[in-house]
C-alpha cells in the first residue's frame, strides 16, 4: 500500500483536473471571502461554510453515485429528480396519511422503518421500471428514463394532491438535519454509501463487468457477462440512491414539496459525473463524481455568500462549468498550449 498517490497512475491523473478546479474555487474564497474557511463548534457540532457545502451537496452526491454507475454502463438516468419527489411525497404521506384530506391532527406516530422503508421500496421499483425498459425492452436510456422524469413528478403531485405536506417526526427529521459525531447526518450517510459502493464495485468483479458492458455490450455478453441483469441492477441502485436523496431533502425542510423537490437535480448530477471525469460508457470514477458535485455546490455557496446578483448567477455558474469541462479536455489543452507556444515564439 502506498500512501501518497502515484502521479503516473492514470486513475489519479483523471482526478487531477477536477481537483484543480475545486481547489481553484476554494482558493478564490480563501483570499476573497472572509470567514469562508472558519469552522466552529456550535452546540456540539461542526459549523461553517465548508460544512454547508458538503451538507447541501449530499443529495446530489447520492444521485451522482448512482448516476456514475448508470453512466458507466452507457446509460443515463433522467428520472432521479422525479424519484426524489416521489420518495419524499410518500414518506410525508406515511407520516400524515390524512393531511391531504384536510385532517390536521396526526394519527398514531408511524414507526421509522415504515417511513423510510416504503418510499425506498417504491424508489427501487421506479429503478426497476427504468431498468426493464432499458435492458429488456431495449429502449434508449435517455428516452426510457425521460418517461419517469415527466410522469414521476406528476405521480408525486398526485400523492400529495398538489399540496406541500408539512410534518413533525423527530426520528425521521434526523435523516435531514440530525448530527452524528458532530457532522450533519446526510454527510455521514453519503460517506457510508460511497464506501459501500466503492467496495462493491472495486473489490469485487462487479465494477469491471459494469465497465465492460459500457465499453462493448456485445463483446461482454459473449464473454459471459450477464449484461441485462447488471443493467437492471444498476438502474435499481440509481433509483435507491435517488430515493435516499429524496428522504434527505424532505426530512431537512420537514415538508414534502412534490413540485420542487429534486427539480433539475438530475442535471446537476449529470454535470457532476461528467465534470468528475466519467465518460459515457466504460471507465468510471466514483470519487470524481463526488468531486464534481463539490465543485458545483461550492460554486453555489460561493455565489450565495458573496452576493452575486441573482440575475447573473446562472450565467456565472455556466461559465465556470464550461471552463472546468474545457480544462479537462485533452484536445483543448493541446490546442491551448500550441496557441500559447506560438504566441511566445512570435513575441
Amino acid at each position: 500500500m502506498k500512501i501518497l498517490p502515484d502521479i503516473q497512475n492514470p486513475n489519479f491523473q483523471r482526478l487531477l483536473w477536477p481537483l484543480a478546479a475545486l481547489a481553484g474555487i476554494l482558493l478564490f474564497n480563501l483570499f476573497f471571502t472572509p470567514g469562508f474557511f472558519e469552522i466552529e463548534i456550535k452546540d456540539g457540532h461542526f459549523f461553517g461554510s465548508l460544512i454547508d457545502i458538503i451538507n447541501r451537496a449530499a443529495p446530489v452526491m447520492l444521485l451522482a453515485i448512482g448516476m456514475t454507475l448508470v453512466f458507466a454502463t452507457g446509460g443515463i438516468d433522467l428520472s432521479v429528480g422525479a424519484v426524489m419527489a416521489i420518495s419524499g411525497a410518500v414518506a410525508a404521506t406515511v407520516i400524515r396519511p390524512d393531511y391531504v384530506k384536510g385532517v390536521l391532527e396526526y394519527g398514531e406516530i408511524q414507526p421509522l422503518y415504515l417511513v423510510i422503508g416504503i418510499p425506498l421500496a417504491l424508489s427501487v421499483l421506479c429503478g426497476l421500471w427504468n431498468g426493464i425498459l432499458v435492458a429488456f425492452v431495449g429502449i434508449q436510456p435517455i428516452i426510457a428514463t425521460l418517461i419517469l422524469m415527466v410522469a414521476g413528478r406528476g405521480i408525486a403531485q398526485l400523492i400529495t394532491q398538489g399540496q406541500i405536506v408539512v410534518f413533525i417526526h423527530e426520528p425521521f427529521q434526523y435523516i435531514g438535519s440530525g448530527f452524528f459525531l458532530g457532522f450533519p447526518f446526510p454527510i455521514v450517510m453519503v460517506v457510508l454509501i460511497f464506501i459501500l459502493t466503492y467496495l462493491l464495485t472495486r473489490k469485487t468483479g462487479l465494477g469491471l463487468f459494469i465497465e465492460a458492458i459500457g465499453a462493448n455490450a456485445v463483446a461482454s455478453r459473449f464473454m459471459g457477462v450477464r449484461e441485462k441483469q447488471i443493467k437492471l441492477a444498476v438502474y435499481m441502485f440509481s433509483g435507491l440512491c435517488a430515493g435516499i436523496a429524496g428522504l434527505v431533502v424532505c426530512a431537512d425542510i420537514k415538508a414534502a414539496d412534490a413540485n420542487n423537490a429534486g427539480l433539475f437535480l438530475e442535471l446537476d448530477a449529470i454535470a457532476a459525473v461528467i465534470i468528475g471525469g466519467t465518460l459515457w460508457g466504460g471507465r468510471f470514477t466514483l470519487l470524481g463524481s463526488i468531486i464534481g458535485t463539490l465543485i458545483i455546490q461550492s460554486l453555489t455557496t460561493t455565489i450565495l455568500t458573496r452576493g452575486i446578483a441573482p440575475e447573473v448567477t446562472l450565467v456565472f455558474k455556466a461559465v465556470v462549468i464550461i471552463a472546468v469541462a474545457l480544462i479537462q479536455s485533452e484536445k483543448f489543452r493541446n490546442v491551448f498550449s500550441v496557441m500559447v507556444a506560438s504566441r511566445r515564439t512570435k513575441a
Partner: peptide, 11 residues
C-alpha cells in the same frame, strides 16, 4: 420554495 429559502438563508 422552502428548500431554497433555507439554503440561501444559511449562506
Amino acid at each position: 420554495t422552502r428548500a431554497k429559502g433555507k439554503e440561501v438563508m444559511e449562506a
